[in-house]
Computed example of a mutant assay.
Amino acid sequence: MSESISSKMAVGGHPLHPMLIHFPVAALIGLIGTDLAWTLTGDYFWARASLWLVGVGVVGGWLSGSVGLLDLLIVAEIRRLITAWCHAILAVMLMSLATLNWLLRIDQAEAAILPWGLFLSLVSGATIALTSYFGGQLVYDHAVGVEYEEAPEPTKPQ
């Protein structure tokens, strides 16, 4: 078993970046659904839901990304991993796409969905998949933020 790499951006040994990323990812994936729902129904509810989802995704994503960036910059063992740089570069690309998507919608939630809003949502979804793949490699292959515990010795029957 390889040595784990501790996160410096942690509370009680629990890394913050993996805790913070779930809501923004869920919001940006949900955005695809609400964009498609608006496309199929034309109901303004879905355009407004899309605006809120992309906003939550952008604000939460930049917050989570900032925490992840601090770990990348502070922890030399993480900084040495090509996988970490791939994850970080893709995350910045993702957040740039999502931010553009949000800015296009702020004043015209409905008008921005077709064609560019939906296109940006779909590209963001694909980028999330690739970014998540590298994030998973950091945890499962490189043990970033994983703390191993010593297994207790098995008791022998008497």
Score class of each variant (00 low, 15 high):
residue 23 F to S: 07
residue 13 G to V: 02
residue 113 I to S: 08
residue 84 A to E: 04
residue 17 H to F: 01
residue 32 I to K: 05
residue 141 D to Q: 14
residue 53 L to E: 06
residue 40 L to T: 10
residue 135 G to A: 03
residue 152 P to R: 03
residue 61 G to L: 05
residue 3 E to F: 09
residue 21 I to L: 12
residue 66 S to V: 09
residue 123 V to N: 00
residue 123 V to I: 15
residue 130 L to Q: 06
residue 31 L to H: 13
residue 134 F to Y: 15
residue 75 V to K: 04
residue 113 I to Q: 07
residue 90 L to C: 08
residue 109 A to I: 01
residue 16 L to W: 09
residue 97 L to K: 00
residue 11 V to C: 03
residue 152 P to S: 02
residue 95 M to E: 10
residue 21 I to Y: 03
residue 148 Y to L: 13
residue 63 L to I: 15
residue 156 K to S: 12
residue 10 A to P: 00
residue 114 L to N: 10
residue 31 L to C: 06
residue 158 Q to T: 07
residue 113 I to Y: 13
residue 3 E to W: 12
residue 26 A to R: 03
residue 146 V to P: 03
residue 49 A to S: 07
residue 12 G to D: 03
residue 95 M to F: 10
residue 147 E to S: 15
residue 121 S to L: 00
residue 98 A to H: 02
residue 21 I to R: 06
residue 100 L to A: 14
residue 39 T to G: 06
residue 46 W to D: 05
residue 33 G to I: 02
residue 63 L to T: 09
residue 128 I to A: 03
residue 152 P to M: 06
residue 46 W to S: 03
residue 19 M to K: 10
residue 65 G to S: 07
residue 23 F to G: 02
residue 114 L to V: 08
residue 72 L to E: 10
residue 142 H to A: 08
residue 46 W to K: 05
residue 100 L to F: 13
residue 42 G to Q: 05
residue 25 V to W: 05
residue 41 T to H: 09
residue 50 S to L: 07
residue 60 G to H: 05
residue 23 F to P: 11
residue 81 L to E: 09
residue 128 I to Y: 06
residue 109 A to P: 12
residue 101 N to T: 03
residue 55 G to M: 14
residue 3 E to K: 08
residue 112 A to Q: 04
residue 142 H to I: 02
residue 148 Y to G: 14
residue 93 M to K: 04
residue 96 S to M: 10
residue 54 V to H: 03
residue 105 R to C: 00
residue 80 R to E: 10
residue 13 G to P: 01
residue 122 L to T: 05
residue 61 G to R: 04
residue 127 T to Q: 00
residue 62 W to H: 12
residue 59 V to R: 09
residue 88 A to M: 11
residue 122 L to A: 15
residue 144 V to M: 14
residue 17 H to K: 05
residue 107 D to Q: 11
residue 17 H to E: 05
residue 148 Y to D: 11
residue 4 S to L: 05
residue 27 A to R: 02
residue 156 K to G: 06
residue 150 E to G: 04
residue 28 L to K: 04
residue 59 V to P: 14
residue 35 D to V: 00
residue 37 A to P: 11
residue 39 T to I: 11
residue 29 I to S: 07
residue 123 V to F: 00
residue 38 W to P: 05
residue 40 L to E: 14
residue 36 L to G: 03
residue 27 A to S: 12
residue 80 R to C: 01
residue 16 L to Y: 06
residue 158 Q to N: 12
residue 47 A to P: 04
residue 121 S to G: 03
residue 77 E to C: 08
residue 2 S to A: 10
residue 6 S to I: 07
residue 114 L to Q: 13
residue 112 A to V: 02
residue 103 L to N: 05
residue 63 L to E: 03
residue 10 A to G: 01
residue 72 L to P: 13
residue 92 V to R: 01
residue 86 C to I: 15
residue 118 L to Q: 06
residue 152 P to W: 06
residue 81 L to G: 12
residue 133 Y to C: 13
residue 34 T to A: 06
residue 84 A to S: 12
residue 99 T to M: 02
residue 37 A to G: 07
residue 138 L to R: 12
residue 108 Q to I: 08
residue 41 T to C: 10
residue 133 Y to W: 15
residue 98 A to V: 04
residue 36 L to T: 14
residue 20 L to F: 13
residue 78 I to S: 13
residue 11 V to P: 01
residue 20 L to C: 02
residue 89 I to R: 04
